[in-house]
Each structure stands twice: as C-alpha cells, then as structure tokens.
C-alpha cells in the first residue's frame, strides 16, 4: 500500500507519503472547537507523527478555515495524539454555512498531510 518507486532512493529526498497511509483519525466538535485524534497504525510510526505532524503544520493546514490556535496532546500509550483546533468551524453547528458544520469530515483533511519516512 505504500507508494512505489523503491529504486535508487539513496540519492533522492526521503519518500513522501500521505499521512493516511500511516495513521487513522476521528474528528469531534464542541461549539467552534474541533478535536481530531490521530493514531499510528504501527507503534513504530508514532515517532514520525510526533516529529512531523506538529502544531505549526496543522495550523497551516487549517489556516484557510480561520484556525486561530492548535494544541497537540501526545498520548504515547495509545501511539496517538489529540489535536484541539480553535475557530475552524466557521460558526460550527450554529452558524456554519458549510454542509458539514460539525467538521466531521475534517479528520480526512488532516490525513491528507504529507509525511517523510
């Protein structure tokens, strides 16, 4: 399931793959605040997530939606981490004109991030 091109990688930049290949996620909401819990499929990849799926990158990923702050809570026992993202729901279930006012689909926006192995 990993991306192809295994040959001659030594001379290239590290292979970039979608976070979706390494991890699974679930989104939930409270008002204007979204949480996305992210878990590595393999515990070995937890360190990669910790290193590369940072608060800064997640804030940038959600910036077009007006995200004002991202906090990340690592959960090593679960090989996962919880992201709490403020002001990303453009009104939430109250005021959003978005079809998905809860932000339930946004776990897959997070999973579209690219990571390097």
């Amino acid at each position: 399931m990993l991306q192809a091109e295994p040959t001659q990688t030594s001379m290239r930049a590290p292979a970039s793959i979608s976070l979706h290949q390494l991890a699974h996620a679930r989104a939930g909401d409270k008002g204007e605040r979204l949480n996305v819990a992210l878990f590595a499929y393999e515990a070995d990849h937890y360190a990669t997530l910790l290193e590369q799926v940072t608060e800064e990158r997640v804030l940038a990923l959600f910036s077009h939606r007006g995200a004002s702050r991202v906090r990340r809570y690592p959960l090593p026992n679960l090989a996962g981490m919880n992201f709490v993202i403020d002001d990303v729901l453009q009104g939430g279930v109250n005021g959003a004109l978005n079809l998905d006012g809860h932000g339930k689909t946004l776990s897959f926006l997070l999973l579209s991030l690219e990571v390097h192995l």
């Binding site: 699974h24 939930g28 909401d29 409270k30 906090r71 026992n77 919880n82």
Partner: peptide
Amino acid sequence: KEQLLYEVHDPANYLTPDVTVDLTHA
C-alpha cells in the same frame, strides 16, 4: 482508541459533572 478521544480536548482533564477524567495513562 478513536472513541476514547472523541470530543475530548485536554486528555488529562476531561470534565464531566461527577469527575474529572485523566486519560494520559490509559
């Protein structure tokens, strides 16, 4: 695991009316 963190914010302080839950050792 996905449901354990569903709609949770700070996993060390999940607030409920009867108890504050700490999931960091779960």
